[in-house]
Amino acid sequence: MSRTNLHIDWTRCDGRGLCTELLPDLLVRDDWGYPLAADPSLDDKSNIPLGRDDEPAAAEAAALCPRLALAVRRRRP
């Protein structure tokens, strides 16, 4: 487990679905197309914990998001 999160800015997200393609193990789409944490037990649904192997795909998702709604961030202590 790395020490980063994928932060979703819901005020920007439009549910275009690129991130769910790039991170299929972490994100699924809800009824309206918005990214939904695949792990239903997660408390914080806006900051998805990333494994070390997820980081490249997460960085790509953040770079490609058409709405600039994603950011890979260091987890808060």
């Binding site: 275009r16 690129l18 197309g33 790509e60 490609l64």
Partner: peptide
């Protein structure tokens, strides 16, 4: 097409965007 949020045949959305 990218704006619609749809994939195109075998091309996924992120590939279309690229």
């Amino acid at each position: 097409l990218v704006r619609s949020g749809r994939p195109l045949l075998v091309l996924p959305r992120f590939s279309l965007a690229l």
